[in-house]
């Protein structure tokens, strides 16, 4: 499916992907600062949900491409059998910087395996969610292998459910193992405790401890770099998307003042903190006090 100009802004598109129940929607709600994506213990089975900035509204795109308004409280009436995509407009700060799409989970025997094939070319950064308790299995690795290298180089692996690994030592061991097995497949691997972060609502310290602040910072870097690259593309026709290196936080701090860059403070409402961003927790740790 191609996202029409009508549903897409010019902003970078961040996609939440991963197997079902990996925590994609939980992360979406965390980023948006609002419980917009449906969350449940079993596979959710809704079409892709595209979030973009704007006055609160929702509509669905039918399989034939036509659109109709949708009750945001009743997203489930739009089933994958009838709906290509759900679009939700919200005033979330996060959406000033990018559009976000919450994809249906993979490995659900009840869902077609190829929902995202057509969307992928439009995606600028993937947050692939994998649960720490069964992290990075072959069914994920095999899918991810089919993603083009430039996109992989701009994507992050989020190891969710880190709160379910009980000791610091084991958290590190899981992270080490995952890092080792995805070497070169992602820009970075980041641990996160999404449910505790969601429960603690606006507590900045909890966001730090759960790894969510670090995740948002890292995402901001990627989006900024992407936006910068876009600007260059406008100016220099030959410029191709460059793989990012791991040490370029400057783009976040010194965001360009004009164009797409001026919207670049990628912070959900609750994460904006006065100058606290320098004290990021170490990525690997994500420990809970």
């Amino acid at each position: 499916m191609t996202l029409t100009n009508k549903s897409r802004s010019r902003k970078p598109l961040v996609a939440l992907m991963g197997e079902f129940s990996a925590g994609k929607s939980t992360l979406a709600n965390l980023l948006l600062g609002e419980a917009l994506s449906p969350i449940q213990a079993t596979a959710t089975q809704v079409p892709p949900i595209l979030y973009r900035h704007g006055e609160a509204a929702a509509f669905r795109t039918r399989l034939d491409g036509t659109q109709e308004p949708l009750d945001p409280g009743d997203l489930r009436s739009a089933t994958p059998g009838t709906t290509k995509m759900i679009t939700i407009q919200a005033e979330a700060d996060f959406l000033r910087a990018c559009d976000l799409v919450d994809m249906p989970g993979t490995s659900d025997p009840n869902m077609p395996a190829d929902t995202w094939d057509s969307l992928l070319p439009e995606v600028d950064c993937v947050l692939w969610c994998t649960p720490a308790t069964q992290a990075w299995r072959q069914s994920e690795a095999a899918l991810w292998e089919r993603v083009a290298q430039p996109l992989r180089d701009r994507s992050l692996l989020v190891v969710t459910r880190m709160d379910k690994i009980l000791t610091e030592r084991d958290r590190l061991r899981v992270l080490r193992r995952v890092q080792q097995s995805v070497d070169g497949l992602f820009l970075d691997v980041l641990p996160a405790m999404l449910l505790p972060a969601l429960k603690a609502a606006d507590d900045p310290q909890v966001l730090e401890e759960t790894g969510v602040s670090a995740l948002i910072d890292r995402l901001a870097e990627v989006i900024d770099a992407d936006a910068a690259a876009r600007q260059q593309t406008v100016r220099l026709v030959e410029a191709a998307a460059q793989p990012l290196t791991r040490t370029e936080p400057s783009l976040v701090q010194d965001a360009p003042e004009s164009g797409a860059g001026q919207e670049m403070r990628v912070m959900p409402r609750r994460v904006v903190m006065d100058g606290a961003r320098t004290q990021r927790p170490r990525h690997e740790a994500g420990g809970r006090a």
Partner: peptide, 12 residues
Amino acid sequence: LSAQQALSSVDM
């Protein structure tokens, strides 16, 4: 099965 993700396509 793991309750967290019961019955994926691999389980099937």
